[in-house]
């Protein structure tokens, strides 16, 4: 019995120290996970959790093809030229968000494929199906907020 208790304590301690977000916040933190649509409606972003941080990738584009080339849109505005041949669909445009509690995720970045710029970003959960996402430069004052709505796949 003592062995079992020791094993349980060891596992509990390891799990506790390996996870920065408290157990009671875990459910709130994961409220960010899902499929979201920015207000412009031209893309859909799927947010997932990878090792305690949250990442969002473009999973759908209203206009998937470049109007000039007719080929799938590429990340041709990226300042990193090696990315110019990367397809926009599948591109991870939200990176490294960490849950801060009270329905807020920060320390992340948002990438704008229209101009190739990456902005600091903070996300707030307005209600379970609505996000307020702000991209900014340096200080939050120099930024712009957008409202994203949660989507679900039709079954």
């Amino acid at each position: 019995m003592k062995r079992l208790i020791l094993i349980f304590l060891a596992v509990a301690a390891t799990t506790y120290f390996a996870t920065p977000v408290k157990a009671q916040d875990k459910e709130g933190a994961d409220a960010l996970i899902g499929i979201w649509e920015p207000s412009h409606g031209k893309a859909r972003i799927k947010i997932d959790k990878i090792a305690d941080k949250y990442y969002g990738r473009i999973v759908w584009l209203k206009e998937p093809n470049d109007p000039v080339t007719g080929e799938p849109k590429l990340d041709k505005n990226n300042p990193d030229e090696s990315m110019h041949s990367a397809p926009l669909r599948g591109y991870r445009m939200l990176k490294d968000f960490e849950y801060q509690g009270d329905g807020e995720w920060s320390e992340g970045t948002i990438y704008d494929p229209e101009n190739g710029n990456t902005y600091s970003s903070v996300i707030k959960l307005k209600d379970e199906n609505t996000l307020d996402i702000r991209g900014y430069i340096g200080m939050k004052t120099f930024g712009r907020s957008d409202v994203w709505k949660r989507l679900k796949i039709k079954r």
Binding site: G34, S39, G41, R44, V59, D127, E128, K149
Partner: peptide, 27 residues
């Protein structure tokens, strides 16, 4: 899970969606 996402994404599924709550308004 991460590796699985890389390999098993069904892109077409994201074309058939509905709003979970209110609709988004475009300005």
């Amino acid at each position: 899970q991460e590796e699985g996402q890389e390999e098993e994404i069904d892109w077409d599924a994201y074309g058939e969606v509905e709003y979970a709550g209110g609709e988004s308004k475009t300005f």
